[in-house]
Amino acid sequence: MDALDDLDQRVSGCRACPRLVDWREEVARTKRAAFADQTYWGRPVPGFGPPDARLLIIGLAPAAHGGNRTGRMFTGDRSGDVLYQALYDVGLASQPTSVAADDGLELYGVRVTAPVHCAPPDNKPTPGERETCRPWLVQELRLLRPTVRAVVVLGGFGWQATLPALAEAGWRVPRPRPAFGHGVRIGIDGSDGSVGGGGPEGLELFGCFHVSQRNTFTGKLTPAMLREVLSTAARAAGLGK
């Protein structure tokens, strides 16, 4: 077992946030009618993707009837439908859909994770829960550090979690900390002084509106906008078409 697999197993056993533990387990017991015949995962959802990923995508938290049901990030919900279709379109996924943890989906040089690993009520974790969960993201970043060269953060909540996690994991985050925005691109120095994209350990940080139903249904985030951010980040990471 490699270090990232070990981390994923430890994440999936976490019970640090009582409100989130109660909610995720209640959802797993009561279920949604459409999934009444399925056994829900009902635990923290670890990251998904290869241990040598060059591009990391950071979301918000698992969906109650998506990742909390399937056990895989962005799998089995409409947000995931949008994200994995876009990853497929830009050559970073083996298939355009993600419906179950055993559906054969592979990501090419990409890992998907979140700053909060448990499904929260109303899709809204608290800042305190984000802080409690942050050490997992810091450990994940440290393990990915030898290879990761670009990070795409989906939404402002994830952005607020990612910047301090990057700093704690050893990167030199600019001060004042850059504000979130769709299409924002920030070069992050590595500890050896290398600038993002230009040397070992530096990376490029990208902001993107979250793939929530609210954003995609209203057109705040279109498939073309998402593909543009992902393809730009992929090039920065040395991946993709």
Rank of each mutant, 00 (worst) to 15 (best):
residue 177 R to W: 00
residue 115 P to E: 10
residue 237 A to I: 07
residue 73 M to E: 11
residue 127 P to C: 11
residue 196 G to Q: 12
residue 70 T to P: 06
residue 203 L to A: 06
residue 102 D to R: 06
residue 87 L to V: 09
residue 86 A to M: 10
residue 160 Q to C: 02
residue 165 A to T: 02
residue 107 L to D: 03
residue 120 P to C: 13
residue 115 P to F: 08
residue 217 F to N: 13
residue 71 G to W: 12
residue 52 D to M: 07
residue 104 G to N: 04
residue 158 G to W: 10
residue 21 V to D: 12
residue 29 R to M: 04
residue 158 G to A: 08
residue 152 V to S: 14
residue 2 D to V: 08
residue 94 S to P: 01
residue 66 G to A: 10
residue 106 E to S: 04
residue 82 V to Q: 08
residue 208 C to I: 07
residue 163 L to E: 02
residue 6 D to T: 15
residue 26 E to V: 01
residue 102 D to E: 14
residue 24 R to Y: 05
residue 126 T to F: 02
residue 115 P to T: 06
residue 157 F to L: 05
residue 40 Y to V: 05
residue 151 V to Y: 03
residue 121 P to Q: 08
residue 28 A to Q: 05
residue 82 V to D: 05
residue 96 P to A: 15
residue 234 A to T: 03
residue 4 L to E: 05
residue 8 D to W: 11
residue 172 R to K: 11
residue 8 D to V: 01
residue 146 P to W: 04
residue 219 G to D: 09
residue 74 F to Q: 12
residue 101 A to W: 07
residue 72 R to T: 14
residue 93 A to H: 01
residue 60 L to Y: 00
residue 8 D to S: 13
residue 155 G to N: 09
residue 60 L to S: 05
residue 171 W to I: 08
residue 228 E to A: 15
residue 21 V to W: 09
residue 204 E to W: 09
residue 174 P to C: 09
residue 163 L to D: 02
residue 105 L to S: 01
residue 7 L to E: 13
residue 101 A to S: 12
residue 65 H to S: 06
residue 166 L to T: 01
residue 220 K to L: 14
residue 218 T to E: 07
residue 159 W to S: 08
residue 220 K to P: 00
